[in-house]
Design a protein around this nucleic acid. Sequence first.
DNA 1: GAGAAAGATGAATCCCTGG
DNA 2: GCCAGGGATTCATCTTTCT
Lengths: 357, 357
Amino acid sequence: MDSIIKGDCVAALNALPDNSVDVVFADPPYNLQLGGTLHRPDQSLVDAVDDEWDQFASFEAYDAFTRAWLLACRRVLKPTGTLWVIGSYHNIFRVGSILQDLHFWILNDIIWRKTNPMPNFKGRRFQNAHETLIWATPNAKAKGYTFNYESMKAANDDVQMRSDWLFPICSGSERLKDEDGKKVHPTQKPEALLARILMASTKPGDVVLDPFFGSGTTGAVAKRLGRHYVGIEREQDYIDAAAERIAAVEPLGKATLSVMTGKKAEPRVAFNTLIESGLIKPGTALTDAKRRYSATVRADGTLACGGEAGSIHRLGAKLQGLDACNGWTFWHFEEGDTLKPIDELRSVIRNDLAKLN
Amino acid sequence: MDSIIKGDCVAALNALPDNSVDVVFADPPYNLQLGGTLHRPDQSLVDAVDDEWDQFASFEAYDAFTRAWLLACRRVLKPTGTLWVIGSYHNIFRVGSILQDLHFWILNDIIWRKTNPMPNFKGRRFQNAHETLIWATPNAKAKGYTFNYESMKAANDDVQMRSDWLFPICSGSERLKDEDGKKVHPTQKPEALLARILMASTKPGDVVLDPFFGSGTTGAVAKRLGRHYVGIEREQDYIDAAAERIAAVEPLGKATLSVMTGKKAEPRVAFNTLIESGLIKPGTALTDAKRRYSATVRADGTLACGGEAGSIHRLGAKLQGLDACNGWTFWHFEEGDTLKPIDELRSVIRNDLAKLN
DNA sequence: GAGAAAGATGAATCCCTGG
DNA sequence: GCCAGGGATTCATCTTTCT
């Protein structure tokens, strides 16, 4: 926990316990398959990613590698966990296909739009200005995963967060450099990207695993956001740089971290509780906001109207001829001259519950 | 040519001649795998894409289908042709992997960012606000494909066009509707998207093939932009709607369609031509813009400097210690007190050539 | 020291013709 | 097929150097 394991990612993953990780973030080799050298129009040389770790003999070799680490990740993932992978068109289609073949279930593909991507120097293609992330659950049936919908929406001017995200590439003081001023890692990811990912799909205290830890962006952001991290990395140089980097990170305070929650995360309140607590009395008449429908509260927490009866939701739906209905907002009670939704009574209960914490 | 073939796309493709198509645009079934029905928060039913043509028994079946139509497309594609496919995360990873397995060569993946995507009604995922296109050549060696780089750049405020494009979804008057006001096709693509694609990767008069013609957006845009189209479609209802739609399209005039070209398209001029036409005399001294290097023009069209000699490009590169150099912009001649690049003399020759036409 | 100018750089599958 | 050679091609941002 909160440490970096040195070694091959599959071997290291196999040494970890089952169902122990909340989120996997993986930035695997892209298998770029670059040809010769590339010069800018000013004749300067482009520093290509030609590291040994990005070389694969064939697509088959890359696929076998991908299958192996994805399977190893799934075993350590909790059933409610999710997995993120980032890639470019060189590799992401293979990763996505294999995820589906292994019965992972894709929740979204996310586009990281770069504000400042490298240009296309020869004018023979569109500027490659984005990378793609895939967000998936370990199987199609997995339902209890964390998605902080309300936080994302609030962070996005109160409209839902979209699948296209805009961030600058990692440069300037954030980019790790060695004593000679050379970049430590050729593909260091921006912290803002990881922060978005962790804020969306983890809760404080969750465990985040990164099987291709590299310069440790995942660890640094996890520590800052009050999440635990586990990193796996083969190369000692990267491990050293990442450890030093993470040691310098100051975690944010608890108050800052409290994830904004929407209705879903609020404690569930049974309609019966309102009766039990005396907020509403059996026999009370409830109506919809326009008084088109009326029903009577029964002692067991159901509503009745003519021959029909059922929960506040079912009866509301049945009377309107719909498949579903939110009874909390549909049904109203009389207070003085005005109608108020019974949701207000639920809020009273919730406030009482909150005081207990 | 400029017609819609009724039938299965692979069978119809197999009846077309080799090397006859400049660009394929394909909008294949997405294999959405939707479970159950989805309602909006107001309980209205979301009209899902649940057509028979979008159903596949398994990923294997979808893959076999994809392989078949991609192979059939490659045979009809010219060696200089390119292929576009659009999809979502449900199918695009499979399409991309198979493209690579078949040794197509990916030029770009393009993100269509939707200005007005459907919201995520359940708040359990990010809003799926984009679709992905892949642009590829038939093989890795294919080099002579059309990419109207200068047009794209000019259309994008004079910076190169990126891989993320922003368009609204197809709606309003553009959306084909039947007599009952119901949409004719569930996934009609916006004409602006096809226009961007055809303006980028075809020339006027080119042949564009769409093996999943649907409501005929490809044909309508091709006709408007002075390109030829070939459509393949199984369902007579779609064919009828597309034919009527295309018949109503007014092609743009020739002048409107001319494509902006860059220096690469200008006629090649040998440096020797400047000497032969008397614009520059043997023995003239040329220097770079900052007068750091100097060389003498020789009668055979080469430059000499000390013991070194060669073409204007080779000598410029050698003197600077670079691999390459554009001699036309590097070397300058004296006119009065100012230095002017010899490129200005090349322009004189090109203007004379243009007058001959 | 301030501001301007010049240099550096980023996951890159990056040319085309003619002999 | 290969090889040689002409000569065309970049955006946003951060750092360093010059005025």
